[in-house]
């Protein structure tokens, strides 16, 4: 009897063989940092000594991609898609209130594989990452910063459109720094492996956006009421404008991913 069953056992053994890995689907959510309290302004002090009361902090995320490996550095300057490095994707946009700890769902489920994930990408776009223009406000902030130089009520809305084109430093390299790269925050450390039915949560800490901002350099747009505004243009040389935009695109600090199996 055992001998008769042996071929069957071998056959069944063959049936459970695999090519390795699995295709999985997962849910994706996003929220502000758990430290914030719903409905209340977020108050914090920046490393440069500004006491900030943040009353509005919204981030528009177009998509999330997960990477099996960190993108190759040399191509970071040129390529927005690096074929073969992706382990997961959530192809849907969500507007995140970074002042709310309540997670909001991405409108679509994520797809991916069980291949190890090393990093994540945030695509700050309203849709087409290659578009020449994109009116989507990816960052919308408001609040008041108080420091030794005084109080600075501020607001800012950033888009990543033709206003963010970076001319190539070397005319022989016209393809360097394409606009699509401005819209991708990468690589955000995320060492994990997706599982079927898991939940991936993007946590946004708005405090990190302002860590290097010198609010005293903001452009005043109104005396009554007093209001300062971040300039939404790459050509602006003002420190606050550059610091906030750089922080928005920083892979270290404002963004954190968590996996709940």
């Amino acid at each position: 009897m055992k001998r008769a069953l042996l071929p069957l056992v071998l056959l069944l053994g063959a049936c459970v063989q695999t090519t390795g890995g699995e295709v999985v689907s997962f849910t994706a959510k996003a929220s502000g940092d758990p430290a914030v309290v719903t409905g209340a302004p977020l108050t914090f002090t920046t490393p440069s000594g500004f006491d900030v009361t943040l009353t509005r902090a919204r981030l528009a995320v177009g998509a999330v991609y997960l990477n099996q490996q960190n993108p190759q550095n040399y191509s970071l300057e040129t390529s927005c898609i690096q074929e073969g490095i992706y382990s997961g994707e959530v192809r849907g946009s969500v507007l995140i209130d970074a002042l709310s700890p309540t997670a909001v769902d991405f409108p679509v489920a994520g797809n991916g594989t069980t291949a190890p994930t090393r990093a994540a990408e945030l695509w700050l776009t309203g849709g087409d990452v290659f578009a020449d223009t994109d009116s989507t406000v990816v960052l919308d902030v408001a609040g008041t910063a108080t420091g030794a130089m005084g109080s600075f009520p501020f607001e800012g809305q950033f888009t990543i459109s033709s206003n963010r084109v970076i001319p190539p430093r070397n005319p022989a390299l016209p393809g360097s720094n394409p606009l699509c790269r401005q819209r991708i925050v990468s690589p955000i450390a995320f060492d994990t492996a997706l599982t079927q039915g898991a939940m991936v949560t993007l946590l946004v800490d708005p405090r990190a956006w302002f860590a290097a901002v010198d609010f005293s350099g903001l452009t005043k747009v109104s005396d009554v009421p007093l209001l300062y505004r971040f300039t939404d243009d790459q050509s602006s040389s003002a420190q606050p404008d550059k610091a906030l935009f750089n922080a928005l695109r920083s892979a270290v600090g404002p963004y954190r991913f968590e996996l709940t199996p």
């Binding site: 300057e77 040129t78 898609i81 690096q82 074929e83 290659f130 390299l173 016209p174 393809g175 360097s176």
Partner: peptide
């Protein structure tokens, strides 16, 4: 087979989409 995935932007090239 892949649609629009394989057109890598090289620095020497003028900016292009896939």
């Amino acid at each position: 087979f892949t649609g629009f995935l394989r057109d890598v932007q090289l620095a020497q090239q003028n900016p292009h989409e896939q």
